[in-house]
């Protein structure tokens, strides 16, 4: 039997990995939609990133009301909940629920948040736990 060339083996492996990733992502979509259907909750689109000495979370919460957004934070998590109302149909579509584990510890007393054009932004300073060392 003829052996496959190396490039073919690598390509096949890349395709297999792509298929695996797609399968995992499809599982995540399924879980999100099942949870949304069963609990009438909505998992918002969100981004979490670090910038310098800050941790920044943005979440897309269209149809939320600034006064009704509940934001709870600990040293290593943000929890956001808010009712979501369809601006056109004027009915409650469900409730946004987002619980995010943070990659580093933050100082909750430094948190500031704003809601603009349907997007919530939460910014917190990282907790300083290390020692400053002079480089010689």
């Amino acid at each position: 039997m003829e052996r496959k060339p190396l490039w073919r083996i690598i390509l096949d492996e890349v395709r297999r990995m792509e298929a695996e990733v797609n399968k995992m992502e499809e599982e995540i979509f399924k879980m999100i939609k099942e949870a949304e259907g069963m609990r009438k909750c909505i998992t918002p689109l969100y981004n979490l990133y670090e910038s310098g000495d800050e941790v920044i979370l943005t979440a897309d919460l269209p149809g939320a009301n600034k006064e009704e957004i509940e934001l709870v934070a600990g040293e290593d998590y943000f929890k956001i909940e808010a009712p979501c109302r369809s601006p056109v149909r004027k009915i409650q579509e469900g409730r946004y629920i987002l619980h995010v584990r943070l990659p580093v510890k933050i100082d909750p007393e430094t948190i500031r948040a704003r809601y603009k054009e349907g997007v919530l932004e939460v910014v917190a300073k990282k907790k300083i736990t290390g020692y400053k060392i002079k480089v010689e």
Partner: peptide, 23 residues
């Protein structure tokens, strides 16, 4: 005027598009 409603309705398409954009 319908921006918020559109954002609501397009959430699933955006989630899938985000996945494609990685690719």
């Amino acid at each position: 005027e319908s921006a918020e409603e559109l954002k609501l309705r397009l959430r699933d398409l955006m989630r899938r598009t985000d996945q494609m954009m990685h690719g």
